[in-house]
Amino acid sequence: MENLILYGVVAILLAFSTQKDKAKTRKALMKGLKALEGILPEFLIVVMIVAVVLAVFDPPTIARLIGSGSSWTGILIASLVGAITLIPGFVAFPAAAELLRNGAGVTQIAAFVSSLMMVGVVTLPLEIRYFGKKASVGRNALAFAFSIVAALFVGWMVAR
């Protein structure tokens, strides 16, 4: 169902774009293809690593570490991992879904996803170059705290 919506929306937009400007649409498709090809090596690496991690950590182990019963420790582990790792969303979402299917808790996965997207420890040096130390460290600290709040909210909403 959700796939259908996705394909439908993109098909309509693509039809509009083609009708308005064929050359631009071709450029858009090439750009999309290039972006997809660009992310492929990273994607394949993460897919393989996640596969091995899931094979080693069986569902009971995952459930214990970041399962719904892991409570605050699990949320903290998940958001710390999210803050440190640098994985694009296209790679992270399927991995997160796979973790959910294997016993991870919704709140913990939301903490991981939120801090992954908003906090960037690895990219901090880059951020500091543009925003200075104070603003960058401040933004990341606030985003880290907020990602835990967001996770609690998402966990609560999904459980309702």
Partner: peptide, 30 residues
């Protein structure tokens, strides 16, 4: 288990990635 997980993830990728990246390209151009 590792093989199954790999295949599952790749299947998701093949189904979902193409429309998403078409969308990215359209946004970028327009």
């Amino acid at each position: 288990r590792a093989e199954k997980s790999l295949v599952d993830q790749l299947k998701t990728m093949l189904l979902v990635m193409p429309p998403i990246f078409v969308l990215l390209g359209l946004l970028d151009v327009w």
